[in-house]
Design a protein around this nucleic acid. Structure first.
Lengths: 344, 344
DNA sequence: ACGTTTGAGCCAAACGTTTGGGTCACCACT
DNA sequence: AGTGGTGACCCAAACGTTTGGCTCAAACGT
């Protein structure tokens, strides 16, 4: 607090005040506990610490990074930060990072290969220690490339190839929704499947379809439509589903915002969500519970996913074995699917 | 791209290859154009640049920061990144920062004084050049403190005291909604006013109330209720408004998410938004247009606000005069307010 | 009594830039 | 022929840390 307004105190300043060498101060203040112990007596150490406090010493991270070749900086790439899902994941990353004394910075890639490359390059030139990608494309060509360059990174939210990743068990999440719809007796169902390059949409869809297949119902490809992960995309996709001859009695949107768009589309056609057509989303956004018609959704631990991803990256950086993690989703049933009639 | 996989190329490496001094290389590669010109002949400069490209040189920002005492780092504080409004503002900041070769990093303060202090302290210890606060509290005690310490900063989205700020003209935005409601004939109106410490909520509310007062209508204090800036908060506030004896025929929520919560509350009471009660929100979130009942809202230029804030900060850092900016809002009328009956 | 250990520090060389001076040859004037 | 300018460089000192090696006295073991 009592920043003198002028410059920052340096190790040298402290060393001079305490009458010891700067290396001693360094070890006491910034070194490992045992480093500190062998560098100075209990007494001198205490004295040094007092001077540090008095002068409000803050280590200069640039100097340290220069010397150690470690920046304690982590770059994070997401499709868009204004997507609540990724924003929440990032909050998890950032919280965990702060706990570990790391700094992170985020950039939007808009899910476009060119921007991914460019932003990654930028992060690298900022000398990040590692990267977290929240925007992995399933083909993973780009990631293979980076991996080849020995840049440490992990994936979050979406998986790709077998790069280390922390995801929600999206396949299982999809199954949960199918299970729910099956219990309600729906057999004519549709899927708003999200972007074709995102493992989240793919896995949720696959899980859903697999479960239906196991129940003896083959969902025709025409009832699986791709979309953007937002309300406008969901609305457009729902429009297509609802326009088909035999319209589905239940729709699984692999994303809450898409589901909200679908709710709008339903209403446009005079259909009552949860009554004429069941709707389920994914992620259990805070909004889901508060909507005029509360939305059935699959809760995914977004914040935790972020935190775990950061910790996974830390392990990668430490050279420890780092295995992918898949967190467990949970179905939350609400009005948007509850009162729908048993399907014909 | 062709990172050799090993270390990074340094100025020294280039200097050696090109057979010149590192200072010359520095001036050519990282110096100002005129610096470069007087440092080397057209020819040598070209040669240096070629070597730089060949060795894939990337300046080490830590070394540069250490030397220049400028980090090109900007710290950004927001209440929560998972609030779409702030996320979008931050996108604007980040875009502008990238354009100017700056790096930014965000932190959540959860709108709490203790966290603001702590995060700011953290940013300072990261040696940021300046700060952008998106979480200013109207009282501004904390900010005065920081200003006293000569830390360069600007505010965004919310104003406080007369610290330089880039905001939306919230007062005007509030008036726009009042105007709209007045035209529709509403005289019994309510306000979901947001957090009492946020200038956004305050100014929007004041503008609204002032315009009503000018029209001869005094909105009683009981019809102005505070709330959090999210759906749950909006729902709670709307519940209170709707429970009153003479319930309002129109409600202005100073935030879209609060408005969505209000829509839910309406529905719970069997009221039709836009029919029995008009609702308007603020920010014109992408979601607003896609809701089952599209939401009337005031569009505020969130992205631009962020970008301008960053540029304002740049001016502050350059020691240039930096005046606050107030961007213009625009009303977007949709179904949530359109079909409401002229009030009694 | 003499070699060995240990505790408590000090020394100095990095890390990769930036930047305020040089230096030195060459040309242009007068 | 001497002076001044200029173009094209080079030198070296910083910026604040970290870290592998020293040193040197006191304590210890036998």
């Amino acid at each position: 607090m009592a920043r003198t307004g002028q410059r920052h105190a340096t190790l040298r300043a402290i060393a001079q005040s305490a009458g010891v060498d700067v290396s001693t101060v360094s070890r006491v203040l910034n070194g490992s506990p045992e480093d500190a112990q062998r560098a100075a007596s209990r007494q001198t150490a205490e004295e040094i610490r007092q001077w540090a406090a008095r002068l409000n010493y803050r280590p200069n991270p640039h100097a340290a990074s220069l010397r150690t070749r470690r920046s304690n900086l982590i770059g994070v790439l997401v499709p868009r930060l204004s997507d609540l899902v990724l924003a929440t994941v990032y909050e998890g990353i950032e919280d965990a990072a702060a706990r570990h004394g790391m700094t992170t910075f985020v950039m939007n890639s808009r899910d476009q290969a060119a921007e991914q490359r460019e932003r990654t390059e930028l992060a690298l030139s900022r000398r990040v220690d590692g990267l977290i990608f929240g925007d992995a494309h399933i083909d993973g060509a780009f990631l293979d490339d980076i991996a080849g360059q020995q840049v440490p990174f992990v994936l979050v939210n979406r998986r790709a190839g077998d790069h280390p990743a922390v995801t929600c068990d999206d396949y299982e999440g999809g199954r949960l929704v199918a299970e729910h719809f099956l219990e309600l007796g729906h057999t004519r169902v549709g899927v708003i499947a999200g972007e074709p390059f995102a493992s989240t949409g793919i896995d949720r869809t696959t899980g859903f379809l697999d479960r239906y297949r196991e129940a003896g119902v083959d969902v025709p490809a025409s009832r699986v439509v791709h979309s953007h992960f937002d309300a406008a995309g969901g609305r457009a996709a729902a429009d297509r589903l609802l326009r088909s001859r035999a319209r589905p009695t239940a729709i699984f949107a692999v994303n809450d915002f898409a589901a909200i768009g679908a709710l709008g589309a339903l209403r446009d056609q005079g259909l009552r969500p949860g009554h004429d057509v069941a709707i389920a989303g994914y992620n259990d956004t805070p909004l889901a519970a508060e909507l005029p018609i509360p939305l059935t959704s699959v809760r995914s631990p977004m914040h935790e996913m972020g935190a775990r991803a950061l910790e996974l990256l830390l392990r990668v950086l430490a050279g420890e074995p780092a295995a992918s993690e898949r967190l467990t989703p949970a179905l939350v049933v609400r009005a948007s699917s509850e009162n729908a009639p048993a399907a014909t």
